[in-house]
Design a protein around this nucleic acid. Structure first.
Lengths: 182, 182
DNA sequence: GACTACTTTCACAAAATTCTGAAGTTAAGG
DNA sequence: CCTTAACTTCAGAATTTTGTGAAAGTAGTC
């Protein structure tokens, strides 16, 4: 009953076991508090510039016990249309934060949080910084390095280049850190 | 004539010298190429989530010879209303990227790029990461650290805490780097 | 202390974005 | 191959954001 409501449709045969586990987890979980957390964290990501629906889907996956959900589950839980789910997962797939799997012999897709997600996210950031750096170098050139503005822009470019190198190192260090403590 | 068009109004008496210097600089500058750079860089900042007008004003200041411009200059060059200038500089002031000065005995304000601008920007980023970290810790608690989801969220929180520490170090290193090479 | 140059605020029009229902597409299973 | 579950695309409604003109506010100057 509760499951039917949540998913809109009962899972089929061999997914019963999975459904039962999820249901048991749900009993222990304060679903209302979890939903609040999802919305809050998604809101913070949205404020930082992430698409709203993508942020909500991401947060929902983050709190899901298996780090994976189907489109129907996402739609049911977040109360959004299949179209909205589709758009969100397309974005998250593009930026390599999630992958899509399919239980063999099913037409349902499952969206799975990528393991190395943060690495992907920061690699992306890094590319952005690099693009800025390039644009700035060009700008410095058109202004002329002998002008105050040109020098200022060149320094900004250098700052981003510096960051670029540092970011890569940070990701390495995080992996070390995780290996050491986790 | 050209100056009149650009500023909408001729500068007064003791600013003549300044105007003449700017005009001379303008002769050397390929203003069209500079404008393209301004729009391009501003566009990139906008894509990354910065308000459009704030990004344009910032870019304009960046290419200005003195790292400073008046509202009239900004409005004239970017073709935007005084209201838009006001909104943009308010934002840039709030995030501590620019300051406002006033030539004594004038009612014109000059908006000046802050020296330690990037430090400010990254401090701000850092605060955002910290807010996320807090939210995530709370989330991990409501889910329970014994659950897979709880553990996953706790790890994410730890990642951001790690980044927090690293970011601060990076800014220090940048200052060193600048002192050493600049 | 009135005048006026400059800046800010505010209400609104325009533009962009976001989400939905519905139609279209794809592919699993008979 | 036909059926149908599941996903995607698309046109449009609703909301939000953005930038403007105009009015209001502020502070130098005479």
């Amino acid at each position: 009953m509760a499951t039917d409501d949540r998913l809109g449709k009962r899972p089929e045969r061999d997914e019963e076991a999975v459904a039962r586990r999820d249901e048991e987890a749900a009993v222990r979980r304060d679903e209302e508090a979890v939903a609040r957390f999802v919305e809050r964290f998604a809101g913070e990501l949205t404020q930082a510039g992430m698409q709203r629906m993508a942020a909500r889907v991401f947060a929902a996956l983050l709190v899901s016990e298996g780090a994976a959900m189907t489109a129907a589950e996402l739609g049911g839980q977040l109360r959004i249309s299949p179209a909205a789910v589709s758009g969100a997962v397309r974005y998250l797939t593009q930026v390599n934060m999630i992958g899509r799997e399919r239980d063999p012999g099913s037409r349902r897709e499952r969206y799975v949080l990528h393991e190395g997600m943060w690495y992907e996210v920061f690699t992306r950031r890094d590319e952005i910084l690099n693009r800025w750096q390039k644009t700035l170098r060009e700008g410095a050139e058109t202004l002329g390095v002998d002008t105050a503005a040109g020098a200022r822009i060149a320094e900004t470019a250098e700052f981003f280049q510096f960051l670029h190198g540092e970011l890569l190192q940070i990701m390495d260090r995080w992996r070390e850190h995780k290996a050491a403590t986790g």
